[in-house]
Design a protein around this nucleic acid. Structure first.
Lengths: 232, 232
DNA sequence: TGCCGTGATCTGTGATCACAGTTAGAGTTG
DNA sequence: CAACTCTAACTGTGATCACAGATCACGGCA
């Protein structure tokens, strides 16, 4: 194998399949709440929008169905699941346990670069939400960035993957609601939680980090539940 | 809607798609370790064996790939992932945290029928593993039954689903190894752990239940790691 | 003898077609 | 005017075909 030296620099170009790209697009729609619970999704319509045949969409949807981020009803219709209050409570409980655990691990295993990205993410989100004209979709995105900066600091790819799947389920409920009630952002509860989490992780205080994340999740969930818009 | 009364009894027959059945079959192969890490799986070959076209297999495989229970290599080959020692340690750590948590919740929320199925599952596995001629595949199955009897008692469908996904990843490593080393079963460490877990759950001692499950998982994982057969 | 090009055969991916079941709406009937 | 019926369009599922890329064995060249 004596190659021209220049070839040692080329990285293998990422051959992302259309199915993967379709998955990424749909997952983003769900996680950011642009697909509402109960909303139906036609394979062919989605394929038209994405400019591909239905095959890549089928693959993407079957993945999301496996994650229970979408469901196909007995009548053969794909839609975003409608969570009952009980299911939403279960989801919230599990999120508090697992994301709280991840935050605790982050406090124990973070390195300097983790602290940096967490601090940057927190700062970016605070700036956006304290802005005179907050951009809601951007705030949602920044919130996600902050949370995953924390979870990434646990250095457990499997844990992060599990949490991503949880967000896929919670996204439609949480973020759809946030869009309908932007005033909640201004109250700044999330901002305070985030600041607390950042400090706890920087100080290596696992229990405090866990509590901070738990409070953040719980407060958003309580707000949703209090509005009572969930399916029976 | 005036139906003959008899029709009120018929349950909607489960219109299980071929894709779902293919998924169930493949998932079972993985969880019980009959598919070895690194082993390749051809869509067309699998379709032939299952007696269907490749379409249902494609759906099943794309789900399993989404769960990271299978992977498709850059060379377009589907195979069971080869875990590095580090990845396996990560998986084990996460399993201890999450399955331990589930056991703790089970101790707090179990009802009488949960205790019954846990006791039955424990008894069945002990009988099998203390038998003069233990049936290994059956022991693997009974071990799974016991663990999920415990996790079901937490009454959190989402948690159970997450754990099922973890077993999909761990199954090939753990159970393949168990098949190669049946003498480990005879040592009865798992049996002792299970008895402890059952008692802890019956007594409502969450911490003890967590520790019991953790010990069970850790001991199996340590054994695997000590044999050093994992990929670099 | 050792190496490299070459082609047959395999891989997963994507498109297209066929089908049964559902849904929505127009048309008809009471 | 309401309720029912029927049809036309649409649903996901499955099969089949087409294709680019990878693998591997065979054969020719050095």
């Amino acid at each position: 194998m004596n190659l021209p030296a220049a070839l040692n620099l080329v990285e293998p170009l990422d051959r992302q399949t259309l199915g993967e790209r379709a998955y990424a697009r749909l997952a983003d729609l769900l996680i950011s709440g642009r697909l509402a619970p109960g909303e139906r999704l036609s394979l062919r319509a989605a394929a038209d929008v994405l400019g591909v045949s239905i095959m890549p969409v089928r693959e993407a949807v079957s993945r999301l169905v496996a994650d229970k981020a979408l469901e196909v009803t007995p009548n053969r219709a794909v839609r975003v699941p409608l969570l009952s209050a009980e299911q939403f409570r279960d989801l919230t409980t599990v999120r508090i346990a697992i994301e709280g655990h991840a935050a605790e691990q982050a406090a124990l295993h973070r390195d300097e670069s983790d602290l940096l990205s967490i601090a940057r993410a927190e700062e970016a989100m605070r700036a956006e939400s304290e802005s005179a004209t907050p951009d809601l979709p951007r705030a949602v995105e920044l919130n996600k960035t902050f949370h995953f900066a924390v979870y990434d600091a646990a250095h457990s790819p499997i844990l992060v993957e599990i949490i991503r799947a949880l967000w896929l389920k919670a996204g439609p409920v949480i973020n759809l609601d946030l869009r309908a009630n932007p005033e909640r952002l201004a109250k700044g509860h999330a901002i305070k939680c985030h600041a607390g989490v950042r400090k706890a992780i920087a100080a290596g205080k696992g229990a405090a980090a866990r509590e901070g994340i738990a409070a953040d999740i719980r407060s958003a969930a309580d707000f949703i539940l209090s509005r009572g818009g969930l399916a029976g």
